[in-house]
Each structure stands twice: as C-alpha cells, then as structure tokens.
Simulated scan of single mutants.
Amino acid sequence: MSAAPLLRVRGLNGWYGKSHILQGVDIAIREGELLALLGRNGAGKTTTMRAIMGLLSRTEGELEFAGAPILGLPSYAIAQRGLALVPENRGIFGALTVEENLKLAARRGSPWGIERIWAMFPALGARRRTPGGKLSGGEQQMLAIGRALVTGPRLLLLDEPTEGLAPVIVAQLVEILRELKAAGLSMLLVEQSLETCMAVADRFQILDGGAIVWEGGSQALLAAADVRSRHLTLERA
C-alpha cells in the first residue's frame, strides 16, 4: 500500500476579489517527487501556489500537508510546517547583501545551511557581500532558491524559475533541481519551458481554466500532441 502524499490538494477553489480563479484543483505530491504544473498564462498556476502558501484572501476546499490540514492557516504558519515558495518575482531584499538575505531566512536545524548554499551556488559565495539588487538575474534566482532552502523545507514550490534567464543559467538551474531531487526534496514546479520540465519532472499536471485537465508521465505527455496543442504554449528554448 503506497504512503499518503506529502501534499494533498482536493477541490481547491480560490478567488481574487470576485474573480473565481481556481475551480476545484486536485494535486498530490509524494515524498521526494517533483511534480511539474503546466498551463498557459492565466491558467491559474501562480494562483495555485499562492493558495497553497496561504497567500489568497479567500480559498475553499481541502489542503493537507504531512497529513495535517493547512487550509486557512496564515502563510507564516504554513512556512513553519515545512513549505517554501520561490516566487516568480524572486522577492529578495535588494538592499541587503547576499549573506544577509540568507541569514535573515535561515532556521536552526535546517539541513540546508549557508555553507551548503555556497557549495551549491559558488557564484553566490563569491558575491556574498554584494547587495541583492546588484546581482544578475540568474544570481538573483539562485539567491531566491538558496533563501528558500535555508528555511529547511520538506516541499519547495518554484514559480517560473527560468523565466528570462540565459540558456547557460537555465542549464545550471536544471542541474540544481536534479541535485535537490537526489537529496530527496519534494518539489512543485511551475514552468513554461517544456524542455526544462522534461529534464527534471517525475510527473506532469496541466491546468486550464482553473482546473486540472490532464496528468501523466513524460512519455504520455510527449505522445499527446493534441493535449499540448490544446492546453499549452510552451516549446520555449
């Protein structure tokens, strides 16, 4: 009998004001799994992540993490349970140095200490005294991931981590995601690059109109040209 999912989302509905964006989303992520959540712009992918992290003012449905309900908890309490979000805008503190950004987020007992972040991202170690706002886009994304990791998450949520980055930086981030998978970290990845997702994801779900419309493995997705044509605008290098 398989173990219960680390994250279970059932019938999740979410609103921005009067706009009903999420309309019954179902997601399950197992321990150590990387699930890619795909869909066109406006499908509700970022809203799903914000709802999971308690950042929407109105949500309904079932949301469980490690067997305990978390729907309705404040975002800081959800983070304390072991979830961490790397937002699309990265959200780093531009006036603080790289090291200060990490120290501000670091939690005692995290397996991802700051020294481990320097080893994973040598470019950050070399610029540890540089203000976050002075980093390149790729370095800022590395810092955003590092800052999430030092909180010691059991589940890492990544929202468009390769957006706007040069191919060489994207390749580096793919290797980082593989390293995190090998370490057993569970991840939910929202990403526009199908190539990136194919390189790292164990399973795929497609969101359209605020609901899951397809799910399966990489070979099934590659074989489903009609599904990709109908629901995705990916194929970005």
Rank of each mutant, 00 (worst) to 15 (best):
A171L: 09
A183H: 10
L180Q: 03
E115P: 03
V174A: 14
L173V: 08
P131F: 09
I176R: 08
G138F: 14
Q205S: 12
M187F: 04
R147H: 05
I169T: 10
G146W: 00
A201D: 10
P111I: 03
S110V: 06
A126D: 14
W112E: 12
L173T: 07
C197I: 03
L149I: 08
M142G: 08
A105W: 02
I117D: 01
I206H: 14
A106R: 08
F204T: 02
I117K: 01
V200F: 12
L155Q: 11
L194I: 14
S193K: 15
F121K: 00
M198V: 02
R116W: 03
T130W: 05
R107H: 12
E139C: 10
P122G: 11
L185P: 10
L158M: 15
L180D: 08
A183G: 09
E160S: 10
T151G: 02
A126R: 15
E191Y: 09
L124Y: 13
I169D: 03
L180M: 08
E175T: 09
D159R: 06
W118K: 12
S193H: 14
G125W: 11
E195T: 14
R127Q: 13
R178I: 01
T196K: 01
A166V: 04
L158T: 00
F204R: 07
Q141K: 04
R147S: 01
R127E: 05
F121T: 01
R147K: 12
W112L: 09
I169E: 03
R128Y: 11
G125F: 11
M142A: 13
D208V: 02
